[in-house]
Structure formats: C-alpha cells, structure tokens
C-alpha cells in the first residue's frame, strides 16, 4: 500500500469527505448500540431529537457548543502554525479564575465597562499561560506537547488549592466552590429565562475575527508560513520565533475566553468541574473543522449536539450516555483518515 499526492480538493470534496467521516462514525457506533441491545435507528433518532428536536434542546446544544467554539478556535490557531497547544484546558481555567477574582466585587464598575475589562484580563491570563511553553520551545527546543499537557494538571491542582483556600466561598457550606460573580459581571441571557447567553455570540464573533486574521492579515500569513515550512519562512525574513509567540498569545487568550464565558455566562461561579474536558474536546473540534475557524463553529455545534442528544437519549433508551464519548472519539479518527484520503490517493499495490 502506498500514498500518492493529489491536487488540491474541490469545494465539493472538502464538504463530502467530512460528511463521509461522520457517516462512518454513525455506522460504527451503531454496532455499540446494537451491543447494548437497542435499535440504532431509534437511538440516533432520540439523539437527534434530544439535540435539536425542540427549542429547549436546540438552545441547550448551542449553550454546550459555546465553550467548544472557543477551545476549538484556540487549537485551530495554534495547530495552523504547528504550535501543538494541548493545554486549552489549563488556559480555560486560567480565564475562569481571573473572572471570579475580578468579578466577585473587586472592581466596582458598571457592566458595560466591567465585562470587557474582565474579558481582557482573562485573555491575558490564558495568553501568559501559553507563553511559557512557547518560550521554552523557541529558546530551548522543549516539546510544547509535553509542557502544555502537563500544565493542565498543574493548573487544575492549583485551582483546587484556590477553591479550598483563598477563593473558597465562605457561604458555600464547605463545598470547594468560589463566590458567585456580581450581577454586573454576568453575561446577559440571549432569551429571557433560557440558558443560552451572550457568550455564544462572542464565540461566533471570535470565529469570524480569527477567520479574517488567518485569511487576510500579515499575521495570519506569517502563521501559515511558519506552520508549513519554518526554515523557508525564516529564510524569507519572517521572524519565526516572534510569530510563534504571537500565535501562543492568541491561542491562549481565546482558550481563556471559554472559561470566562462559562463562569460569567452560565455557571456564575468556579468549581472544579467547570469543564468536563472542553480543552481536550477542542482538539477534536478543530480537527473536524480541518483547522478552519468558520468550520470550528459547525463542528463545535455538531460535537455539542452529540453530547446533549446522548444525554437525553440515555434517559429514555437506557443506552449509556458514554456512547457520546465513543462517537466523538470515533469522529476524530475517521476525520483524520478523511483528511488523509483527501490529500492522498491510496494505491493497493
């Protein structure tokens, strides 16, 4: 078996291959559903219904997609420059910590000023968190996969320490949770009485901005050049290390917005289960979108739909909701294969 390079794929192929990947994912996970003793059709119908079958379901899916758009964008930006940021989870928590530190009454400002100030501070925290690994990479050649991955655990333990210590809510009946952010620091709901909040629109806006940055600006051009061929980029006079720093700042900052938006928009306070692995799922989201910022929005909604739909399905069909994890993981694998098939023709002898 061998691979032959293909010319650039057409738009139809660019859409058809990911669709094929999703189809293969559904087919292979139906085997598991069968093993659990249920009918794949009714289970997938229930997943679809649970994800988009009602206004409530749809809004719930978009709410769940919001942090995934941020982490997916963060990963897409970094991977484009071949900066392997596996630490979106840690950057998310950094943003969340800053949000509760500044949002619980420390800054007596009105909402239109307070919210942007907190947002910028949260982004700065996430950006700084990724700057360390990026500096170690450019200065000493330390592999950023290792440093960013391990920082996730360090930051999570650090947050745990804060929640048992200085950030612990004195009125929290001993639970490891922070105080709630003040009303002026909360993101408004988009529809009265529903959970979907302004964070979703901020995420869409972020995706649009990232798309413009990558496509239209010199920075985006530099990032792509550095990602494709750092040696040629350096020869052409592109400051490779400084581009990697800027990429790290951008990626870390966007990932931190996920934490900011979850605290200020949804949860109101910080707990250790703020993120059920949104940082890691962001990698799947970015890969499914083939690192395209606008594609990230679509793939984040798709992944969120599977999670939300599977929750609803498990309540009625009795198939464990862990099927969602399997489906998302399978989707990543099939997508990686689809990307390869899109770029190469496979010759069987």
């Amino acid at each position: 078996m061998r691979l032959e390079a293909k010319p650039a794929p057409s738009l139809a192929a660019t859409l058809a291959y990911p669709a094929g990947a999703v189809l293969v994912t559904l087919l292979s996970s139906s085997l598991l559903v069968l093993a659990a003793g249920a009918s794949p059709f009714s289970v997938f119908a229930l997943v679809a219904k649970g994800a988009a079958g009602s206004q409530f379901a749809l809004l719930e899916t978009l709410t769940r997609a919001t942090p995934l758009i941020f982490t997916g964008l963060a990963v897409a930006v970094a991977f484009r420059a071949k900066l392997w940021n596996i630490g979106a989870e840690a950057q998310l928590y950094a943003g969340a910590v800053v949000t509760v530190v500044l949002g619980t009454g420390a800054l007596p400002l009105p909402a239109p000023i307070l919210i942007p100030v907190i947002m910028i501070a949260a982004m700065a925290a996430g950006a700084l968190l990724l700057l360390g690994p990026a500096l170690l990479k450019t200065r000493f050649g330390v592999d950023e996969v290792v440093t960013t991955l391990l920082l996730n655990f360090i930051v999570l333990l650090f947050v745990s320490m804060l929640l048992e210590g200085v950030l612990k809510d004195p009125m929290g009946l001993g639970w490891p949770q922070s105080q709630r952010v003040v009303a002026d620091a909360q993101l408004p709901r988009l529809i009265q009485g529903k959970r979907l909040h302004l964070g979703f629109l901020i995420a869409i806006l972020a995706a649009a901005i990232v798309w413009v940055v990558m496509k239209k600006t010199t920075l985006g051009y530099e990032m792509r050049a550095v990602g494709h061929n750092p040696e040629a980029a350096r020869f052409a006079g592109i400051p490779v290390n400084s581009v990697l720093m800027k990429t790290a700042l951008l990626s870390g900052g966007i990932a931190a917005l996920a934490g900011f938006s979850e605290v200020a928009g949804l949860k109101g306070n910080l707990t250790l289960d703020l993120s059920p692995g949104y940082g890691y799922t962001g990698i799947v989201v970015a890969m499914l979108a083939m690192l395209n910022p606008l594609g990230v929005v679509a793939s984040a909604i798709f992944v969120a739909a599977i999670f939300v739909g599977a929750d609803a399905m498990s309540r009625t069909a009795g198939v464990p909701s862990y099927i969602a994890e399997v489906m998302v993981a399978t989707a990543l694998l099939t997508m990686v294969v689809a990307i390869m098939l899109m770029r190469f023709k496979v010759r069987w002898r």
Binding site: Y221, A225, H228, N229, E231, A232, A233, F235, A236, G237
Partner: peptide, 15 residues
Amino acid sequence: VGTIGDMSVTENVIS
C-alpha cells in the same frame, strides 16, 4: 528553503 510547498504560487512570491 526557497519555497513553502503547501502554499500557493501567490503566497510564495510575496514571502
């Protein structure tokens, strides 16, 4: 060194 293979002709000539 001279070119970035996966980028377009346009992107390469302005590098």
